[in-house]
Amino acid sequence: MNIFRLAGDMTHLMSVLVLLLKIHTIKSCAGISLKTQELYALVFATRYLDIFTDFISVYNTIMKLIFLGSSFSIVWYMRRHKLVRRSYDKEQDTFRHFFLVLPCLLLALVMNEKFTFKEVMWAFSLYLEAVAILPQLVLLQRTKNIDNLTGQYVFLLGAYRAFYIFNWIYRYFTEPHYVHWITWISGLVQTLLYADFFYYYFNSWKNNVKLHLPA
């Protein structure tokens, strides 16, 4: 465990917990894409199939349980909680899961480290994670008005991506057999998707104005 990996995990954890806490406290999910949240729940469910078969560390197991629990809680709040679901921008959040899930599944069947159920699902989760933010970015574009917490949520996710890339670079040079092409390429694609958002986020922060995305 290096400092970049830890910082990446912590910003990832914070992004999910900030969102869950926001929804729980103000009983609103305005500006949050349910499609993206459902895709993340699917990402964690398919990636952590090894949770009971491969023990890595107590840290690893606990983090997996927190990610699974918090992502499914967010989906539950947005779909089932009678106050929260009323604030959901259903008409604006029109991205189809199918268009992201199917190509990722096909890609995972072709490109994986080993053709086993667990490895195909692992690859699928990496590909899906790379693009799962798209419905959220589309929703941000449409609603224009981005409150601080939604902005912070996407910012923390972007920070997590950046730290993970530093972690891979660090591990590449410090661990002799550390080569994971699938992880790196899908991770890089995911980070690039945030670059555009970051540009506007930093501009609004620098000029101390409310975040607005262009049409």
């Binding site: 990996r5 995990d9 990832h12 990636r47 090894d50 491969d54 890595i56 560390s57 690893n60 983090m63 997996k64 990610f67 480290e113 692992w122 993970y164 972690n167 661990e175 057999h177 992880t183």
Partner: peptide
Amino acid sequence: SSTEKVHDEL
């Protein structure tokens, strides 16, 4: 590290 690859990242 072992030869059997395990995914140790989240």
